[in-house]
Design a protein around this nucleic acid. Structure first.
Length: 281
DNA sequence: AAAACTCTCAACCGCAGGTGG
DNA sequence: ACCACCTGCGGTTGAGAGTTT
């Protein structure tokens, strides 16, 4: 198998040349096999011992972002998107820290999501992604919108379940007090009804957020939340929104702005005018 | 059909912090 | 205390896929 792939002609003249660029299937197999046999860590040694002409850093990155068995791929669910926004509110560009609370997701993926999706739309709106204005947009429009989607998905799934009496791997219990495995930061039934795609991951996520909330003490209050500190801010956003999304009292649609989606985007974004008309909260 | 453009994401880079000799 | 090496993090880049013109 030709591993030079032609992007570094000097490599042909020097067998010890460090390879760069995309990993081949063969390299992946070698690295995965070596890690399986010897475990993670000591990446420079891994690269040498496995005979990979890669840097230790490259091996580490490839393992963490791609080869790790628990790594998840594919689009972020609305729940995950909501969690990213929430955690970014708290920690800013601390991607690795955010990733710690999103099982199976890598800091690289989250960072890419933020840059390609969030920053793109901030740019479309003509506001700085770090500005208070954009944070307000996220808190009052984007996040509720995501919750709306989560609720819609949950409702649709619930309807399907009822209609077909299909067993679904959910944490939902007729009695919320029995949903021990799904208990998030709040003791209510806010983490029930995960009968939407990735439900088991949401369970993990809500638990992670609860843990994060426990960690989160004394840090600065951010955004334009209700004026409480730490836990209050947390309660007023993630937990409350999820409660509204999943609560058995039905979602309170008054929470959600009456947004008219920007027709040109067709994917749930709203116009500049819509946003500013909703700024009177 | 094809050129131009946009978007996504894997991978690289530089830097900082930790550790051991 | 200093140095060398390793690891982890956040920012950036570029190839390729997808979309538009």
């Amino acid at each position: 198998m030709d591993l030079s792939c032609g992007w570094n002609s000097a490599a042909a003249a020097d067998q010890e040349e460090i390879r760069r660029g995309p990993w081949t299937v063969e390299e992946d197999a070698v690295l995965a096999g070596h890690v399986a046999a010897h475990g993670e860590g000591r990446w420079n040694e891994v690269a040498r011992a496995a005979g990979l002409r890669r840097t230790g850093k490259s091996c580490r990155l490839r393992w963490l972002n791609y080869l790790r068995p628990d790594v998840r791929r594919g689009d972020f669910s609305p729940q995950e998107q909501l969690l990213i926004l929430e955690l970014h509110f708290r920690w800013g560009n601390r991607w690795s820290k955010i990733a710690q609370h999103m099982p199976g997701r890598t800091d690289n993926e989250i960072k890419n999501y933020w840059r390609t999706r969030v920053q793109k739309h901030a740019k479309q709106l003509g506001v700085d992604v770090a500005s208070a204005r954009f944070r307000d947009v996220m808190r009052h429009l984007w996040m509720p919108r995501l919750v709306e989607r989560i609720h819609a998905a949950a409702a649709a799934a619930a309807a399907t379940t009822t209609e077909h009496a299909t067993p679904v791997d959910v944490c939902h219990s007729p009695d919320p007090s029995t949903t021990t495995s799904c208990t998030a930061g709040t003791s209510s039934s806010t983490s029930t009804s995960m009968s939407v795609p990735h439900n088991h991951h949401l369970t993990a996520m809500t638990t992670s957020v609860a843990e994060a909330a426990a960690d989160w003490s004394g840090s600065e209050q951010c955004g334009s939340a209700s004026g409480g500190i730490s836990d209050d801010m947390f309660e007023g956003s993630w937990s409350e929104l999820l409660a509204r999304a999943y609560g058995d009292d039905g979602a309170d649609s008054s929470l959600l702005p009456d947004m008219h989606m920007a027709a040109e985007t067709g994917e749930g974004w709203w116009s500049f005018e819509d946003i500013w008309s909703q700024q009177q909260y």
